[in-house]
Amino acid sequence: MASLRELSKKKDYLTGGHRLCAGCGHSIAVRQVLLASEDPVVVGCATGCLEVSTTIYPYTAWKCSYIHNAFENVAATISGVESAYQALKRRGKVDKELKFVAFGGDGGTYDIGLQSLSGALERGHNMLYVCLDNGAYMNTGIQRSSATPKGAWTTTTPVGSVRPGKPRKRKDLTAICADHNIPYVAQASISHWKDLHAKAAKALQADGPAFLNILSPCPRGWRHPSDQTVKMAKLGVQTGFWPLYEVENGVWKVTVKVREPKPVAEWFKLQGRFKHLFAPGNEALLADLQGDVDSQLERILARCESTQE
């Protein structure tokens, strides 16, 4: 494991001058993932904040080759790039080792891009898919996705007189990807850079497809100050909302153990999107949400136990 000082000597694939909001988690995640690659990378992006902000013609913030196609198809697109690489390598037209990495937001991954992702994972391309999960369609203005936590305010699950934010639980995309039985799947957080780095390195070295789901706070959508981005990610882990684990060749393992998870309310109360939960009358909902976090953790621990080598 390289120290930060060692890592800081490596090539940064993303330059400054992109137009992501101040304090955005996405560019932190991208930098941390790509620092783990020993080989040059080729990147694909789904439509979303990262895409529109990093490649505003005639500027690109990417020092590597990059492709954007559409919203729902970055997995298929990068699988096409990787297939071209395999074909041209076989024909002796390309000889360098390259890594192929796709980035999509939660909207582009959990929702509209799920089919494309599932197909690419099943086909076994040598690619890493990274979902940057900020829990809503932030690029179009904070609409709910299937990654939005239950109870969260978004512009399509507004807090009204009869509805307290999003009524449904999140989809467990990491588990869905793990059940594709691919070599490597993990959940990571930008706050835990060392854990993220180790996971990205494993994912990039895997023989076949890999998937990383990264918690990437959004100051605009979560309604927190821009300097709190890393703290929000860290608290997401410390409350058990975002357990850090990996599934390596079918074996589930928690990589950062949180001995005594803080109440999830401590995380919620720092974010404007959950403000309404603390209004009188919502105590039962808050308890319910804590129950969801607890049962999710239990599910993960049960799978860790059942798949132990």
Binding site: A76, G80, S83, A87
Partner: peptide
């Protein structure tokens, strides 16, 4: 043939993969 044959899961992904493969510099 020694073509890389990508058995996609839909036509949307077929064309998406073709775009990726062609942009990468291959004949598709």
């Amino acid at each position: 043939v020694d073509t890389e044959y990508v058995t996609v899961e839909s036509e949307h992904s077929a064309m998406s993969a073709c775009v990726g493969a062609s942009a990468a510099g291959s004949r598709v």
